[in-house]
Amino acid sequence: MTYTKYQEIVKKETPKKKLAQHLLFAFISGGLIATLGELFYNFALNILHFPLEESSFFAGICLVSLASILTMLTFHNDLAQLCGAGMFLPTTGFANSLTSASMEGRSEGLIQGIGASIFSLAGSVICYGILISWYFATIYYLLNLWGINIWA
């Protein structure tokens, strides 16, 4: 029994991925969440008469609240097993990672448990977002300084 023979056997015996189902559900759930966001935005703009920036903030926090409450009721992980990328890519995924990580740390107290583990999963999103924005802003700053104005 050589290693190559073993790898062939594993490849043959591994069950087929449910690719079509996963892609379909990712498409539908991602779209539905964005539609919900649009609904909240229009509600804030037209019915509550908030200014533009606040309406979009309102839509964002509605999605965050929805995700956190679903996480609290333990429905989010069942939905995510079904929908895949449709749940982790919108802001619902970000809110879910914060809520679930902080809930999990509860047994270790406020500081070492909840406080220390809240950003254990979402930390890289914030870190690398800031890093890349600073990098591009520095390029923009230098181009501006040298009078090069490729775009306004």
Binding site: P15, K17, K18, H22, T71, T74, H76, N77, L79, A80, Q81, L82, C83, G84, A85, M87, F88, G93, N96, S97, T99, S100, A101, M103, E104, L121
Partner: peptide, 11 residues
């Protein structure tokens, strides 16, 4: 991952 984290585990 934490038990309530929404991850799609492989089959």
């Amino acid at each position: 991952y934490p038990t309530t984290y929404g991850i799609q585990k492989k089959q």
